[in-house]
Design a protein around this nucleic acid. Sequence first.
DNA 1: TAATCATGTCATCCT
DNA 2: CGAGGATGACATGAT
Length: 770
Amino acid sequence: MLSLKKYLTEGLLQFTILLSLIGVRVDVDTYLTSQLPPLREIILGPSSAYTQTQFHNLRNTLDGYGIHPKSIDLDNYFTARRLLSQVRALDRFQVPTTEVNAWLVHRDPEGSVSGSQPSSGLALESSSGLQDVTGTDNGVRESETEQGFSEDLEDLGAVAPPVSGDLTKEDIDLIDILWRQDIDLGAGREIFDYSHRQKEQDVDKELQDGAEQEDTWPGEGAEALARNLLVDGETGESFPAQVPDGEDQTALSLEECLRLLEATCPFGENAEFPADISSLTEAVPSESEPPGLQNNLLSPLLTGTESPFDLEQQWQDLMSIMEMQAMEVNTSTSEILYSAPPGDPLSANYSLAPNTPINQNVSLHQASLGGCSQDFSLFSPEVESLPVADSSTLLPLVPSNSTNLNSTFGSTNLAGLFFPPQLNGTANDTAGPELPDPLGGLLDEAMLDEISLMDLAIEEGFNPVQASQLEEEFDSDSGLSLDSSHSPSSLSSSEGSSSSSSSSSSSSSSSASSSFSEEGAVGYSSDSETLDLEEAEGAVGYQPEYSKFCRMSYQDPSPLSCLPYLEHVGHNHTYNMAPSALDSADLPPPSTLKKGSKEKQSDFLDKQMSRDEHRARAMKIPFTNDKIINLPVEEFNELLSKYQLSEAQLSLIRDIRRRGKNKMAAQNCRKRKLDTILNLERDVEDLQRDKARLLREKVEFLRSLRQMKQKVQSLYQEVFGRLRDENGRPYSPSQYALQYTGDGSVLLIPRALADQQARRQERKPKDRRK
DNA sequence: TAATCATGTCATCCT
DNA sequence: CGAGGATGACATGAT
């Protein structure tokens, strides 16, 4: 039951963070990436502004006991570290791995516009986009991307694996020197323990990275946007810079495709219509080039593909945003992207006539990482005919936006993908001669379901269930740990740490008690005793709590920490677990003191004592508070039975014991809380990684789907173009359409009929969704 | 001086 | 039933 309760509590916390992470507005990302302190502190660890907290975290979790959190040394230390790192950064080539990758990838032979883009994510995606149609090394490329991505995450501190390589020997040496300077002031070496150092380093790193990225990422977002929308050097068309970037490969293949299509529609005779689609496929290998093709056949099909393409692209935009967020692009960038003036992209886009679909398609291939703003401009007229707000509000993944999402995402499923836009209910004024949906029956329902599931999963903020379902369907080797199995782990870890802490605390206290217990009870001067007695009897309320003598962290064995002169060095919130022990331990033998100093000393001692100690003294309790608190029940009762104690004394003793126990419990409780938060931090990082990976996978799926779709389209055109009526004339695409039946046969049916059926099929998945 | 933090304490629930 | 652990809430002192 205890663990269940724990689990629930922790689970609630996790759930909360989870919600904010994956659900509503995906805001944790922005919290993480922006410089908003609170959540960021919790998740990524405290910044220097929260040094105190950070220190306590370390103190509690990393055994960083030894320097007081409020000590000035700490600031010195951090400042020194930071300056040191900055100085060192001057002579070091500190380029994040991803950055390097980006540059490598960006060695564009054409020196295209995007080559100057600093966005690593964009570059990476572009790289995979470059390989898009070749497809052969896609896997390799993708893995590169993934690697780069995760590295990126790590670089940005979202992940903090102990990379010992981060610290060079000179680093350690320098830190060592610093430590030696600090240890005199009471700083324990644990402070400079690696984990701590790494945390600190992360802070430094963040500073440096922040400086670097200011150059590259967020600040230039708008500029990049502007640049990306500039006129393309090659074609003179105005479209996003990504377009020429990807043109190398995809455009090429699409041009091939175009040629193929143009070639496949001869006006010749003897058009034999293959009865079977498979035979059709065999008869016309996708890359073969039958000569001659009617041009007007192209546009309906190609424009028909634009809408789905653009929907995919929206997904990729989504991707980009997610990943950019994950890459700790700060919110300002996102805002820039979100609020990208619709006018320019739109006009730029509309400058793309529908009869230049290649560029659009090509750009769509590339629209993945980073380039969200550009991507907006890539929406085809069909999609952009929707209110602009729809497409932009789509991006933050607001669940309440479901209607818009449905209207846009709904057509992302295959039915939408393969239906010409006019059948989708989206206006398509620019489309040329219309062709009916040729491919409605080509892909089976199951696939439709999968795709819509994917859409749904991400659309609704990555519902874990759906996401895992999605995972099961698409990726068996998932590392996703969204389910509750994670909580027990963190639970157990916190449990373990708490138990360890409690055990160590009790052990340290008890050891103290064993050595010093008796002295504490006897060593008080009588006058102060009577005084205290009066006070105690007069006032039931607490006396003011005296400041403590030493910082005695309940786990801190460091003798340095008990030096009285250190008290004014830093504020001292001691866990006075064994105050009497401390008192007696640190006091010089009374014989060595003069009488005046002895008085002072006892005054001083008084001030070091906790309220309970004062009360105990006042009530003449014959044994130490430490014993009262830490003795096992049996021994405690034995002890009580040895003395004749008044009811008041007994009651006080019980109170002391209760309070002492509760004090430790509170300490443990707080420590547990911190542990929980740290664990959650790690969990969030993991989930972010998982999320990014899933999104990458989705993009991959969509990419391959798009390729399939292209193939099918070209095949359709080829087949349709070869059809001849009894007079040997080609069928008009505006009047006839091919339709695939369930049994694999292909029918030539009148356009109107095809439209009807297409609409019916289109409604199905939408209904299912409701 | 107000805000914030760390810590102690109490009340309460639970085992 | 009492001891004691856990934890939320509040108090207090320090910064």
